[in-house]
Every structure is written in C-alpha cells, then in structure tokens.
Design a protein around this nucleic acid. Structure first.
Length: 863
RNA sequence: GCCGGGGUGGCGGAACUGGUAGACGCGCCGGACUCAAAAUCCGGUUCUGGAAACAGAGUGAGGGUUCGAUUCCCUCCCCCGGCACCA
C-alpha cells in the first residue's frame, strides 16, 4: 500500500483485473436475478455529465445488490439512429454511420474508464442490421394483425429545402436552415394503433407502484380518458360529428367549429375565396402542440348551417384554428357559456353566449367576462327546455338517451392519446420494409429477405431524404409479381428502436429470434433509471411495445419496468459578456475565477485569461449554447473515476437536479485521501490483534461500535430502499470522521478499528469501487470486496445507554434531558419541569397540557 | 396555453410517519505546521442583539388547521421538465 492515494495508479489495474476475471458477467453468482437498466445513450460524441450521473446511479444499485448476493445484469448499448448524425454529416461531410461508430468507440472507452460493472458481452447498437432487422420483422407482424396501418398525417414542411422538419428544426415558425416560413403538409405515413391499448395502458399504471407518482400522473393525463358523447349535427347533405364531454350543455351550443383541415371546411372553401385564404393562413406555422395552443384564436364563418339535433335550430359553422384535426372528430359544438376557449372565441366574433347551468350560491351569470365556476358541474340545467331543473349528471343521461333514440348520438369514451405515427422522412433510421409496386400496391418485404439494409455511405445535405435519391436502394423488384418496384424510403421513428432494446440485451447472441426464453427469465427490468424528460413518450411507447410483443406471444410480462427512477438534470453556473449589440458571449466555468468577501459571499467573477470581469448568468442545465458543460473525462483524468463518481452521488439526491461544483469535487477528493490515510494509519499501528470482543470495550469503544452499526443500517437502507445516495455518503463521512478521531486515542481498540475500516470499505464500495478494492486488500483480505458480502448489522451494538429528550414550552425548545431509554412518562414530566430554564418560562402561568413523545420530546403547554 | 415538478444558511443539500431546522460537504474566518507557499491538521460559521449565558426572528409570499408545520390545507409569486419529428 502506498503512503498516499494515487487513483491513476490503481484504477486501470483494477479495471483490467475485473475484465480478466469477467467480474461483471451477468451469469456470475447464484442468487436471485436482478435486472438493472440505465437508459442507453445517444452516441453524440463524448460522454456528458448527464450520462455519467445516470450510469453511476445504476452502478451503485447494481454493485450494492451484487454485494447482497443478487445475480445482477447491467447492460449497455447505443441509441444509434437519429437526427444529430445527419446534422453532423451536413456539417462535416462524414457519413452518419462512420460518425456514429467512431463516437461509440470513444464513448465505450470512456464508460470503461469510469469502472461501471457492465456486462459488455451484451452490448448492442440500434444501427446494426442484427438489431434493426427485428424492428422490421415485428413491424410486418403488426401489419398482418392490423395494428400497423397507413393514413395521412400532418408534418412541418420547409418549402425551400423541400424537406420535412422536426419540431426542433422549426424556430419561430421558420425552417432553421432556410429561414423559410414553415407550412403544414399532409403526407401518407404508417401508424401503430396505440389507441387500441389506451385503456390498458391507463389501467396498468395502477400496478406500477415502483414508479414515481408524478410520472404515473403525467402518463394518465397524456392518455387522457374522458367520458362524453358523440353527437351528429346535420349540415346540408353532410353530417358534422363532434365529441363532447359536456352533452348536458347541448342546449347551450350556439355555433359549430371545425378544424381548417376538416373536409367540410375544404368543401366550403371551394366557392369561397376568402375562406380558402383563411384556411391557407391556418396552414402556416408548425405542427407542435405548444405552438398551436399559444397562437391567437382565429376563425371565419363558412356560411354553412348545422341543425341542432334536439331543437332543430340553425347553428353557424365556423372554421377555427383552436380546433385540432388530430383530436376527437376535428369538429366541436361550441358552448361559450361553459367553455373558456369557446367563450373567448364567441366574445371576439360576437357570437351568442347562453347560460345553461346555474351557478353555485345563486351567483349571477356575467356574459361579458369569464369565470372559473362556469365549468362546474354542480348546478342545475336552465334555458334547456325539457331538461330545465335537472342536475348535470341527470341532464347528461337524459340528453344522451334522447339523442340515441333519434340516432343522433351516443355515449362514448374518448382518449387524448393519438395513434403513433412511426414514419420519418429521414435517412439515418431503420428502413420500413415495404415495396411499392404499381401493380400490387404496398407489398411487405418477405421475412426471408430481411433485413432491408440501410446503405451506410450516404451523406445528407439538408434537402430531402438522400435515401429517396439512392437508386441502388430504391430500385428493386416486387416480391409478388416480380416486376420492377420501388422501396419505401421512409425510416422508422427512433422511439421504435428504444421501445424494446431492453429485451434484446437478455438474448443479444441469438441471431435466430427477436427474443427467447432468456428474455422471460430476466424480465421485467427490476430497476430502470433515466432522465425525467422521458417520463411520457419513451416510457409510454416502451410499455405499449411490450404489450404488443406479449400479444404476439413473444414475452410473458405485461409491463417492462417494475421500478423506475427518474434522475434530475445536471446544471452548472453560467458566465457571459455582452457586446454592443446586446449579444452574449458565454464563458466556460473552468475559465472563470470567482472572488468572495470575508463571509464567503459572491463578489464578482473574472475571466482568467484577461483578468476582466464577466457577468454571472445563474445556474442552468449544462448545454453547448451556454458553454457551461463540464467534461467528465477531464475530471476523471485529474482526480480518478472514484472522486467523480463520489461527488456526483453526494451533491444531490438522484431525483433532483445536480449543480456541478469543482470545489465540491475537491471535497470528494479530500474525503478519499482521508479514507486512504486513515486505513494506512490503522495498518501502521501493527497487528489488528485477535477477534473483537465487544464486552471488553470501554465507553468510547462501545459508542464507536454503536455508530458503526447504526451507519451500516442507515447506508443499507439508503442504498436498498430510499435510493438517497447523498445521505448514505454523508453517513459514511460522518462515521469515518469519528473513526479517525477514535483511532488516534491511545486506548483505542485495534480489533474494533479493523472491524470499522472493513465495514466502511464495504459500505463505500458501490460508489467508489476502485479504492474499495485496493483498501480491501490492504486490510488483509484476498479476493474482491464485491465477493465479500454486505456487512451485517449487530443488533446488540445498537443498544443505547441514554437518549436525549427535548423539552419545549409552548413549542419552543427550552432545555434537554439525558435519560435512559423508555423512561416512564411521570419521571420525564417531573424532570422536565425541574429544568432551570424550563421553570423560567412556566413560572406564573398555569400548565394546561403536557405532551410526551417517548424518547423524543416533552412539550409543556402553558398560558 | 395545457400537464407535471420544485423553492430551506454565502453555496450544494439534510430533517424518512406532523415532533430538536440547517446532518454531511463546499466556501469563508481564525489557529497549527512551514523560511515561504501548496498540501494537511485543529477550532468557528443561519440572521439580529449580547463578552457569554441566553433571547428574538427564520424553510419563496400571505393566510389556515394543530400543543407543535420545511412536512397537511387554501391563495399568490418565481424557476424548471414535457407537449407527440431532439433524444
């Protein structure tokens, strides 16, 4: 053992040793299986702090459970298809395949240098044909079952680049490269019927009790089940079908509104140029919901009249940009009296507003301004003819019944969730295995011809999909009739790739089948860890895909992830200077020095290169745009993997955002140095001397041993149940402070010190595995610390001689009592009253109550 | 706009079931060691008053429930995540 801690010397050796021993192979061990999965990274170039944090959390859990005797699978792979590779190709002229594979190689090296207990034999990349062939194979099964189907969908269209744009490529309504105004355009796409699974996806959320409540709530709201009615309004020879959650307010409907894309709107526009112009206006802008929901409400009368199915009254039909074609029927009955958006619209276009539900406490209705209580369902119907006086519930039922008897409507459940469009007009993705034949139509590629390989040498240029221009790919023959035909050039949404990768890890060596019996042996994933930003889409699609595979008889589980941990973002301070035009130039925190006053408060920040001040821009998510990224690799090179791992686990609990601090890293480094020198000092005193005999310990020894076993209990609880690694580490630090102090006493018991150090080394091992292995051997053990087992709590060591009770008067602390545990209530009260300081506050007042919480607190209520 | 989450010392955070607010770490202040510096070690550190004992205030703002509220309820402010083609 060296005198001081040198991570650069020990870490590579230990990593090589693990590799030589195949220490992280999932088949090792004999205990119950545990599948610990971290969300796989997009290979963007190099590891960032978010990855580092995510995988450290997974590694701590994996290594802790491994020490507890579980057989742990911790795999790793690459979410390797996607837009950034195409953007990099445009910038550098390098094919996405080459760029991606180079990034993977580099990031794999980085992950290895961090010492994660990953079973690398199962590694996969979604851009490998061996992986994506199964996307294609399963897509064909879904097509056979009718789960996959084709229909048109709306996309962002850049008229200059002649390209479909992703939502993030639309900036302020314009294409990010061309600057052209973006238009909505309808194109044919493949969809998956996730709405057929909406009810099951909603219902089984209840079983996911290992998921954070907020994620379940977000998913439930996303699925958005609502009970209401479908109502048909005659409109000339056509019918306008609407869905409403408030059929009870039908008598308050004063106009109809349809989406700009609604067939009726298009028809009406044919001989109405003004309306056609308005519809064209609605086609401008992007398709994202945030954009649609925040735009100004606009509308135009079509001149058409719809017939109210109960009263026969004529209602004007409007086109309105707040009605979405993608939700419900693309048309609504507007009840401005009891819907805020309809109200706003009616007020703007001077449409009639009718109150049909009475307000609570007989409040007066005000048709000139909106009030929240207009949507309440607790009142009685009025202005509703035969339904007057009914409650909303009764009115709902009566009106739906009447509609049904006239074949003008029925009760129906509607989901907010829409079917999943999986077609992407992009090159770097999994080809959709379809061949278009002029004679046979859309023909699935036969299973034996899979995979449809993506050519890997194309370079996108931003103008459309290069795959569509790749003759060698596009031109083929029809599998049915053998005549010349064209391949589909759309690729799959990358969410398809990430919807089942966790299944493939369990059987990645099987080239005959998508999954096998190993899959059912490992599934479900016991613990899934990833960013909160995936709370809805990725997790919902993965749940859905798992159910699809279950219904195909491929997997046994209903739900893929038993327990979910959503980690927070990694943040860092930002610094900038403003130029004359008000543009900000951002400086990396590593290049800035901070001056503080003598109370440690921030005074100013100076750029190291020129000594001149910069502005502090607050703490933000690490991002290229703010130049506040901290490179984990630089820190690993400087301090070693253990220090970086330790700080990232210590600085915040996993669910919260983590603020990066170089000074904090320094603190983690100091702790590991003290740990090293503490063990070193212990070993320098000579032999540990026989076994520990607790009965021969003095007061200080008993106290230290109690702290040791309290710490073992606390750390095990924090690692195993709470997943609050920060408090586990704090407890280990606290105990090691005590131990360092204790072992400097001349009367310190050497055997107790030995027990304590071997305890600490095992407790910290999941977080800082390299130093733990090294110290474990220094303390005289052969073999790996991860084979040593988790330390056991000695219950007898936990017994306390005294407990401290707080004495309060009227809820304010006025004194403390040191008493044997479980002292009788009378004695506690008596001693509390006798306290000098307590008497001062009780004197002259009458004692009304005395509350005693055993072993904790006495509160004397006076007054 | 809609859905979800958060706000505690100079800073990151702790307080797990309504019971001592500020564990642990950073920073800062003072001291030891050193020719000196770095590193290391020891002590102090919520704010206000006080030499101290101690007292008062204090968990985004305001109100409520309770013997007792960071924790439960109501109203408001600010920050962050998601919104279906970023992953």
């Amino acid at each position: 053992m060296t005198d001081s801690y040198h991570p650069a010397r020990i870490e590579p050796d230990i990593q090589q040793h693990w590799e030589a021993q195949a220490a992280h192979r999932a088949e090792r061990g004999s205990g119950e299986r545990f599948y610990c999965l971290s969300m796989f990274p997009y290979p963007s170039g190099k590891l960032h702090m978010g990855h580092m944090r995510n995988y450290t959390i997974g590694d701590v859990i994996s290594r802790y459970l491994r020490m507890c005797g579980r057989r742990v699978l911790q795999p790793m792979g690459w979410d390797a298809f996607g837009l950034p590779a195409e953007n990099a190709a445009m910038a550098n002229g390098v094919p996405p395949a080459e760029w991606t594979r180079r990034n993977i190689a580099h990031m794999r090296t980085q992950l290895k240098s961090l010492g994660f207990a990953i079973d690398w034999e199962r590694e996969l990349a979604t851009c490998d044909p061996d992986y994506y062939r199964w996307n294609q194979w399963f897509f064909l099964r879904l097509l056979e079952r009718g789960v996959a189907y084709k229909k048109t969908g709306v996309v962002n269209w850049d008229p200059v680049d002649q390209s479909v744009l992703a939502n993030e490529q639309v900036v302020d309504g314009r294409g990010w490269r061309s600057g052209a105004l973006v238009e909505k355009r309808e194109i044919p796409m493949y969809y998956l019927r996730i709405t057929d699974y909406a009810q099951e996806l909603l219902d089984s959320l209840d079983q996911l009790d290992g998921w954070p409540e907020r994620v379940r709530t977000m998913q439930a709201n996303w699925i958005g089940r609502s009970e209401g009615a479908e109502i048909s309004f005659a409109c000339g020879t056509e019918t306008i079908k609407v869905f409403t959650t408030r059929p009870d307010t039908l008598m308050g409907a004063t106009y109809m509104a349809v989406a700009a894309e609604h067939p009726l709107a298009r028809k009406a526009a044919r001989d109405n140029p003004a309306l056609a112009e308005f519809i064209a206006l609605c086609q401008q802008g992007g398709v994202s919901e945030a954009e649609l929901a925040t735009q100004e409400k606009l509308g135009m009368d079509t001149g058409l009249k719809a017939i109210h199915p109960l009263t026969g009254a004529e209602l004007p039909v409007w086109v309105a940009n707040y009605v979405l074609m993608g939700y419900g029927e693309g048309a609504i009955m507007a009840v401005p009296g009891h819907d805020e958006r309809d109200f706003e619209f009616a007020l703007k276009y001077e449409l009639p507003i009718v109150q049909v539900v009475s307000l609570p406490d007989g409040r007066a209705y005000d048709a000139s301004s909106w009030h929240e209580d207009y949507v309440v369902k607790s009142g009685q119907l009025l202005n509703s003819g035969p339904y007057d006086g009914l409650s909303c519930e009764a009115g709902f039922e009566a009106i739906v019944n009447d509609l049904e008897s006239r074949s003008a409507g029925r009760a129906r459940v509607q989901f907010r969730l829409r079917d999943w469009g999986i077609s992407r007009q992009r090159y770097w993705g999994c080809p959709i295995p379809i061949i278009h034949c002029d004679h046979c139509g859309d023909v699935p590629v036969p299973d034996e011809d899979l995979p449809v390989r993506l050519p890997e040498d194309l370079v996108p240029d931003g103008a459309g999909n290069p795959l569509a221009r790749c003759e060698a790919f596009v031109n083929t023959t029809c599998p049915k009739c053998g005549r010349p035909a064209r391949r589909e050039t759309d690729t799959m949404d990358t969410f398809v790739d990430s919807s089942w990768y966790f299944l493939r890890y369990t059987c990645s060596d099987n080239d005959q089948a998508m999954v096998d019996e190993q899959t059912n042996a490992w599934m479900p994933v016991d613990q899934y860890i990833g960013g909160i930003e995936h709370a809805i889409l990725h997790l919902l699609y993965a749940r859905f895909w798992t159910k699809l595979m279950r219904d195909e008889g491929l997997v046994a589980v209903d739900e893929p992830f038993a327990r979910l941990l959503t980690q927070g973002m990694v943040l860092a301070e930002t610094y900038y200077r403003e130029d004359a035009a008000g543009r900000r130039q951002w400086f990396n925190p590593a290049d800035v020095d901070v001056e503080r006053d003598d109370k440690g408060r921030f005074v100013r920040a100076l750029l190291r290169s020129d000594g001149q001040p910069v502005h502090a821009g607050g703490v933000e998510k690490m991002a290229k745009s703010k130049n506040n990224g901290v490179d984990p690799q630089a820190l690993v090179d400087q301090y070693g993997a253990d220090t970086v791992r330790l700080f990232s686990m210590f600085a915040a609990p996993p669910e919260q955002s983590l603020e990066w601090s170089d000074a904090g890293v320094e603190g983690a480094w100091r702790f590991l140095k003290r740990l090293w020198s503490g063990v070193r000092a212990h070993l320098d005193t000579g032999s540990a001397g026989g076994g520990l005999d607790p009965t021969r310990l003095d007061q200080a020894g008993l106290e230290l041993r109690r702290l040791l076993h309290e710490t073992i209990a606390k750390v095990g609880d924090d690692f195993g149940r709470r997943y609050t690694f920060n408090t586990a580490i704090a407890a280990i630090m606290e105990f090691s402070n005590h131990l360092n102090r204790y072992q400097q006493e001349p009367a310190a018991d050497r055997s107790l010190c030995q027990e304590a150090w071997t305890g600490i080394v095992r407790l910290i091992a999941p977080v800082t595995p390299h130093i733990a292995e090294a110290l474990w051997q220094s303390l005289g053990h052969a073999g790996s610390v991860f084979d040593a087992g988790w330390p056991a709590v000695d219950e007898s060591a936990l017994v306390r001689q005294t407990v401290t009770l707080v004495v309060q008067v009227n809820g304010k602390v006025r004194g403390r009592l040191a008493l044997p545990p479980d002292s009788p209530r009378e004695q506690v009260e008596h001693l509390a009253m006798a306290e000098e300081n307590v008497r001062r506050f009780v004197e002259g007042q009458s004692v009304r109550r005395v509350i005693v919480v055993p072993n904790k607190l006495v509160n004397i209520v006076v007054g």
